[in-house]
Simulated scan of single mutants.
Amino acid sequence: MLLRNKKKGLLAGKRALSSQKKQKVLKPLRARQLIRRFHVLLKNKTQLAKRLEKIWNCKLESDPAKLIKEHSPGLFKIFEQARLHTIETLLVNKSTPSAIINTDSLQPDRICEELGKIEGEIEKRGGLELYQAASVQGQSSQRGGDSSKKLVEWLKELGYNKKDAVALEIGCLNSRNLISTCGLFSKVVKIDLHSQEPDILEQDFMERPLPKSADEQFDLISCSLVVNFVPDPCLRGQMMHRITQFLKPYSQKPYLFFVLPLPCVINSRYFDNDRLSELMRALGFECIRHHESHKLAYYLYQWERRVSDELKFPKKELHKGAKRNNFCIVIS
Rank of each mutant, 00 (worst) to 15 (best):
L2K: 05
N5Y: 02
N5P: 00
N5C: 00
G9C: 07
L11A: 06
A12P: 00
R15I: 09
S18M: 13
S19Q: 15
Q23Y: 10
L26N: 13
K27V: 04
P28D: 09
R32T: 11
L34Q: 03
L41S: 05
L42S: 04
L42Y: 09
T46K: 15
T46E: 14
R51S: 03
R51I: 01
L52N: 00
E53F: 02
I55E: 01
K59A: 01
S62T: 12
K66F: 13
K66W: 13
K66I: 15
L67K: 14
K69Q: 14
H71F: 15
K77P: 00
F79R: 00
F79I: 06
L90D: 11
L90T: 14
L91D: 15
V92I: 14
N93H: 14
N93G: 13
I100D: 01
I100R: 03
I101A: 05
N102I: 01
P108Y: 04
E113V: 04
E113S: 12
L115W: 04
G116I: 11
G116Q: 11
E121S: 14
I122M: 09
E123D: 15
G126R: 10
L128C: 13
L130P: 08
Q132A: 15
A134L: 05
Q137K: 11
G138C: 11
Q139C: 10
R143W: 15
G144Y: 10
D146M: 02
D146N: 06
S148I: 03
S148M: 11
K149T: 12
K150R: 13
V152D: 01
L155N: 07
K156Y: 06
E157P: 10
L158P: 07
G159P: 08
K162N: 08
D164K: 12
D164P: 07
D164T: 05
L168Q: 02
I170K: 03
L173M: 10
N177S: 11
I179T: 10
I179S: 13
S180R: 13
T181P: 06
G183M: 00
V188M: 07
K190R: 13
K190C: 07
I191P: 06
D192A: 14
I200W: 09
E202I: 00
Q203I: 07
Q203V: 02
F205V: 03
F205E: 01
R208H: 01
P211M: 09
P211A: 11
S213Y: 08
D215L: 11
L220T: 07
S222P: 08
C223S: 13
S224W: 10
L225Y: 12
L225T: 06
V226H: 04
V227E: 04
V227D: 05
V230C: 14
V230N: 10
V230Q: 11
P233R: 05
C234P: 00
I243R: 01
K248I: 10
P249T: 08
S251G: 11
P254K: 06
Y255G: 02
F257S: 07
F258W: 06
Y270W: 12
Y270Q: 09
R275F: 07
L276I: 00
E278V: 01
L279R: 01
E286H: 04
I288E: 08
H291W: 07
E292L: 03
E292A: 05
L300W: 06
W303A: 05
E304S: 12
S308P: 05
L311Q: 08
K315Y: 03
K315N: 02
N325A: 02
N326T: 13
I329S: 03
I329Q: 04
I329T: 04
I329Y: 03
I329F: 06
V330Q: 12
